[in-house]
């Protein structure tokens, strides 16, 4: 077991090591396992020639914006689908579900034209808008809300709560696990999103980390020191968050995978 784990972690370790190796060590045969000395030259070059800090900030803004707005609109909609009665409710939910697994590939071309006419191309809003109303969010939250005992809602109604009161005083306080699970899911999804971001974000100042890495790679084909140091720096935030929230993230996946909960 430890052997497999070691095998699995070697690529990441090697990238991290390459990021701090001086060039002669990177291109040596036989390979140098331990660098003769550590260097921050690649990192220095990265920050000098690319707006890496800006990319980090862009990614952070995009992921936060999408996560917050998605949680809000999905909660409202899921509450309505789970607990309120209105004509056409189940039909609309079914349509949204059918779209759940449809690929974004078919819609990127129309989206490109749309964002162009809204003047949102190459802005963080243009990148964010198509990622907010994900069917999976409404689906997960609705499943969870359905399992909250009806009695709680009835008691609140008798005490004079409106629907808004039921949502804010009964449903939301009892749904922390699913908010955490979906929040982490969508944050990770947005943080790593590549296809639409690559199309929407064009200038080097506006792009997010995944697209930024592509820019570096497109510019220097064989500068492994620079590109691995960029990959290492881009992965660092994920690594830190993972080390802190490991248990929660893994439990969240069990919850959102549709097997549990």
């Amino acid at each position: 077991m430890f052997g497999i784990a070691l095998l699995w972690i070697i690529p990441s370790l090697w990238v991290a090591e390459t990021a701090f190796k001086p060039n002669p060590d990177i291109f040596s045969i036989p390979p140098k396992w331990l660098p003769s000395r550590l260097t921050t030259a690649h990192l220095g070059k990265l920050f000098a020639s690319w707006p890496f800090g800006r990319w980090l900030l862009n990614s952070l803004i995009l992921a936060t914006l999408v996560t917050a707005s998605s949680l809000i609109v999905s909660t409202l909609a899921a509450f309505s689908f789970a607990r309120l009665q209105w004509p056409g409710r189940d039909a609309l939910f079914l349509v949204i579900l059918v779209f759940m697994l449809l690929p974004m590939e078919v819609s990127v071309i129309p989206l490109y034209f749309m964002m162009n006419s809204f003047r949102l191309l190459n802005t963080i809003y243009g990148a964010a808008l198509p990622m907010i109303a994900l069917p999976i969010g409404v689906f997960l939250l609705r499943q969870f809300f359905l399992n909250i005992p009806r009695d709680l809602e009835d008691a609140a109604r008798i005490d004079g709560c409106s629907s808004w009161g039921v949502l804010t005083r009964v449903i939301i306080p009892n749904s922390t696990p699913v908010f955490a699970a979906y929040g982490m899911y969508i944050f990770n999804y947005t943080w790593n999103e590549f296809f639409w971001s690559l199309i929407c974000l064009r200038s080097a100042q506006k792009v997010t980390l995944p697209v930024g890495l592509r820019l570096i790679q497109g510019a220097f084909e064989i500068n492994y020191g620079l590109i691995t140091s960029a990959a290492f720096m881009a992965s660092l935030p994920s690594l830190v968050v993972f080390l802190i929230l490991r248990q929660r993230i893994i439990r969240g996946i069990a919850l959102s995978s549709g097997i549990k909960g």
Binding site: W191, P210, L213
Partner: peptide, 18 residues
Amino acid sequence: LFFPYLLTVSTVAITWKW
């Protein structure tokens, strides 16, 4: 075993290209 999932596709591609 789980950690690579959290990497962006760009990082995965750079890692394995190398």
